[in-house]
Nucleic acid binder design. Structure first.
Lengths: 202, 202
DNA sequence: GAAATAAGTCAACATGGCTGACATAACCGA
DNA sequence: TCGGTTATGTCAGCCATGTTGACTTATTTC
């Protein structure tokens, strides 16, 4: 928390209901939610709108692949795994765990299904043979691309609609939205849209 | 699909593995993934980067409230419900179903918990007494704000980092990312950061 | 008064998270 | 070379949250 501190968490857990017809949303007489003095800071209300828009945008962003996945008996978890294996083929199981922020038991379940059904193959690492490097099969690539297609259309159109300069702005926004400590990791992952340089863990 | 059509889904489900060391990511000799001629269209690779950044950004965007929710025995589903009830107090159950795109049975479970624990109250509609309008209690407002706080900080900083004009660009981008048919509904919902005008369903 | 609508409920099931415990193979340093 | 660490896999069970289908109740509407 760097800003906004006295905004939320200020009028704490009052007693009880006082049922309906609440004033706009909180007892907040200050005009700008506590972050007014910082010249450029947005009002809390505007930030909340962005939070909502982000929710709706992401909800719909995932809807097309979700629909396709059902035909394959897969879920969103499979999509995530397949996407990253396809885009960064040769990554290790540990890399994937780090990207997805899930446990290896959770990953194991979906990864095994993707392997069993022939969408992903494993290969022992060259330098370290304990590592299992992951690669998409042709079938895996085809599915990954089919899942990505509607998302790319969506993004392409949204960027166009956002107007000139949108690309740079959006990139900076998204990167800054990622937790600071995660950024180097994300950069490192995204820097290899190809076989990850072996041993390039961190 | 408006563009990008012959890009993905082109080289379909080939036979089998041909294991590792895949060329960058697909058999795609065309320089610009099939959407080159449209002067301003981004390359497939760049669009994929945006897709990944969106994933990472959203992953981290939800991480702070998720951590807080654990202390309350709630999950992300509770957060979503509480957020929308707080921001758009007085909405109906049907509105919520529409926003969240889940079944009423799914909603019922988390909503009941939020009601039982005193975060949300219901009130019969004035004009139509079948409707159950939803309102946050003081306790509910407090929790909603506590959950929102880190997200607002994150957004505020990311918008600052994105530079001048980011606000307008981002708004256009997010709105355009929402499925076209959903946009009127979303606008209508977002237009009421207060008690929804009764009967204002669609 | 009958049909349609808003909401709630019961039951069963699927997906994808989680924890904990433990096994195997390979690497690495003393 | 042995012993500790690391990378991965696996078994077992639990929880959160999504699904379908069937049905009830209250209320509005025609």
């Amino acid at each position: 928390m760097t800003d906004l501190n006295e905004g939320p968490a200020a009028d704490q857990t009052g007693p009880e209901a006082k049922p309906p017809r609440a004033k706009t949303h909180g007892a907040r007489p200050r005009g700008n939610g506590g972050l007014a003095r910082k010249r450029a800071a947005l009002s809390e209300a505007k930030l909340l709108e962005f939070a909502e828009l982000l929710f709706f945008a992401y909800r719909d962003f995932t809807s097309d692949p979700d629909a396709i996945l059902k035909d394959f008996g897969f879920g969103r978890a499979h999509h995530r795994v397949l996407h990253f294996v396809n885009r960064h083929s040769g990554l290790r199981v540990a890399d994937l765990l780090d990207i997805l922020t899930i446990t290896k038991q959770s990953l194991s379940r979906v990864l095994k299904q993707l392997i069993d059904k022939g969408y992903i193959v494993q290969q022992a690492g060259a330098s370290d043979r304990r590592e299992r490097l992951l690669f998409p099969t042709d079938k895996g690539r085809a599915l990954a691309e089919r899942l990505a297609a509607p998302q790319l259309v969506r993004l392409s159109e949204a960027l166009k609609a956002a107007g000139p300069g949108a690309e740079a702005v959006l990139r900076r926004f998204l990167e800054a939205t990622i937790t600071a400590e995660e950024r180097p990791k994300v950069s490192s992952i995204m820097a290899s849209p190809a076989p990850l340089k072996p041993g390039g863990k961190d």
